[in-house]
Design a protein around this nucleic acid. Structure first.
Length: 547
RNA sequence: GGCCCCAUCGUCUAGUGGCCUAGGACAUCACUCUUUCAAGGUGAAGACACGGGUUCGAUUCCCGUUGGGGCCGCCA
């Protein structure tokens, strides 16, 4: 049908694309419903809205879509607000800050919604419907079974006072439905997708108000977008099919329709399905995702039960905060998940992002969340931080794990700085410090990797070398990496062995493990006393196991 | 099933008719450095879903096919 140019010209004349010609001040919003956790996808949508607002010196509104009042608002909202704060996405109007259109909670705007419902009813754009929920769902199922359109039959529509009286005599209660047009179509000029068309006849007569007078999402959303003077509705693609019925409300009310921009979905690792909080078990099959989750588990082990399930789920923003990601790294990664400036720029500060961001460079196809790539941004930014700062970020994890006492001593601080310095990019997120708590354990409590111990320390000749090296260490002027290296090199020369012949045994003796940081850094962190003690202990242990 | 959307390396992407023997990043692999593990250095492999048009010329425009996704609630 689109192949006939005359027809399409004709059609587009009948149905001019919806677009606001008047340039209004930029006002955007993100409208989370309080579900108790901030989904990564919401974070990305919020970020794009925020960047768009900041780029255009517009206003970023945070509105709480809590028309479904079953949940405890405060409890469910706090983690979401916290997510915004942590990411550094600040809102100009919304909870706490308020603003000219307060309140920004849908649950407190019901009077206004009812007013609009009244007007819609009056103009004939909506009608009273007396079907029960059971009746409509039975009808819908029958339609599906017969492979017919599931559009509501309007069988219980009360379009005359008589019908209304009759239904009410039956004890029925009315909901309010939108009366969708039965012909023509709507073309929406989407800022990322271009022209999108909807056939009105296929649109459902959506319920906008329940029998108890409470209003539903589509109505509330349209009313708020109008009342809050939202100029651009930037939201996820899952809302694309909702657009027609919302535009219908705008048009019925003769309101100026905002511009729409539908963002590609944030998809699962390695698939195009919508990323979901509930599919954690499945995502664990992805190695990079599993690595992330492992960090959360490690953290939970070390710091006890105050950590809830959302904090352990990388689909939720809270996870990244908990395990010590840098918010800027997450923001940088998320910005690039569905948007790119050019063929090479990947690192952006917030300011650069604001400067560079535009909707016309947003992609159309879903983008899979890739934990490995996020980690690359994180590692890069982490390593760019001075060692003092990284130590500062790591410290709370050690305190919570109970290996550093509070208030921390200058000695502890110095030691953590040395550990962080020696660890280099092995500490990618702040919680990774938890891999190195052995530096804080008592010498007597050091556990050994048994396999490594046998291979390295129980090796013939190793014990003798360790004994003599211990004496060497006892005499080193200062336990400092450079001097330690000199001492060890001199030692192996004297012994006529290669450095590899002793260093592995030494590593296992003092750390219990086969792998670790640079040997001299390790020794310097441990200090003379621990080094000597640990060698003694390992030597004794090796001699015992020999028998 | 209906409607809507989408389609470049494994992943994120550049590309808007000739600059493309398709560029970058992450991941992968190899080599190198090395006291281990990382990191670093060097290099390699790796994509325009398919079929028709339009055009002197298609990754790029059009149509179709296939594939993927979203929505079809008295949820948001």
């Amino acid at each position: 049908m689109g192949s006939n140019p005359i027809l399409s010209v004709h059609r587009s004349m009948l149905n001019p694309a919806v677009s606001s010609s008047a340039s209004r001040p930029v006002r955007v919003r993100v409208a989370p419903s309080p579900t108790g956790a901030m989904h990564l996808g919401l974070a990305r949508t919020a970020l794009y809205n925020w960047l768009f607002a900041r780029h255009h010196q517009g206003t970023f509104v945070l509105r709480i879509d809590d028309t479904d009042v079953e949940r405890n608002l405060d409890e469910a909202l706090a983690p979401i607000l916290r997510g915004f704060c942590w990411l550094g996405i600040d809102w100009d109007e919304g909870p706490q800050t308020d603003g000219p259109h307060a309140p920004y909670y849908q649950s407190r705007r019901t009077a206004r919604y009812r007013e609009v419902v009244g007007q819609l009813l009056e103009s004939g754009a909506a009608y009273l419907d007396y079907a029960t929920a059971a009746e409509t769902s039975a009808e819908r199922e029958a339609a599906i079974a017969m492979k017919r359109s599931t559009r509501y039959s309007r069988r219980w529509m009360a379009d005359t006072p008589e019908k209304r009286a009759r239904f009410e005599a039956e004890g029925r209660q009315a909901v309010v439905r939108l009366k969708m047009p039965s012909q023509a179509s709507l073309a929406v000029d989407d800022l990322v997708r271009g022209k999108v068309e909807f056939d009105w006849a296929l649109e459902q007569d959506h319920v906008i108000q329940r029998a108890d007078g409470s209003c539903l999402y589509h109505l509330a959303s349209a009313v708020d977008d109008h009342d809050f003077e939202i100029s651009h509705v930037i939201r996820a693609e899952e809302h694309l099919s909702n657009t027609a019925r919302q535009v219908f409300i705008f048009q019925a009310m003769r309101w100026e329709v905002p511009q729409f921009a539908h963002l590609p979905l944030v998809a699962e690792p390695g698939s195009k399905n919508k990323l979901s909080k509930r599919k954690l078990a499945q995502y664990l099959r992805n190695k990079d995702f599993a690595d992330l989750v492992a960090r959360g588990r490690k953290l939970a082990e070390s710091s006890g039960p105050e950590i809830g399930p959302d904090a352990l789920n990388p689909v939720s923003v809270e996870f990244y905060e908990r395990v010590g990601f840098l918010p800027d790294a997450v923001v940088n990664y998320l910005a690039l998940l569905g948007w790119a400036l050019d063929d090479r720029t990947e690192e952006f500060t917030r300011e650069q992002l604001i400067e560079a961001f535009s909707l016309d460079k947003v992609n159309k196809s879903p983008s899979s969340y890739d934990p490995a790539k996020l980690m690359a941004f994180q590692t890069r930014q982490m390593l760019a931080l001075p060692v003092e700062r990284r130590a500062e970020l790591a410290m709370p994890f050690l305190v919570r794990a109970g290996v550093v006492a509070e208030p921390e001593s200058p000695e502890a601080r110095g030691r953590v700085e040395r550990i962080v310095g020696a660890a280099g990019d092995r500490i990618k997120v702040a919680a990774d410090i938890l891999d190195y708590t052995d530096f804080f354990t008592e010498d007597e409590g050091l556990a050994y990797d048994e396999k490594a111990f046998r291979k390295r320390v129980c090796k013939p000749g190793a014990v003798g070398l360790l004994r003599r090296l211990r004496e060497e260490f006892a005499g080193v002027r200062e336990f400092e990496p450079g001097l330690l290296e000199q001492a060890v090199r001199a030692f192996v020369d004297r012994e006529g062995v290669r450095i590899g012949d002793i260093i592995h045994a030494l590593r296992v003796a003092v750390t219990g493990k086969a792998v670790g940081f640079g040997m001299y850094d390790t020794l310097a962190i441990l200090g003379r006393e621990s080094t000597v003690n640990r060698i003694d202990r390992a030597v004794a242990r090796a001699e015992q196991t020999k028998d």
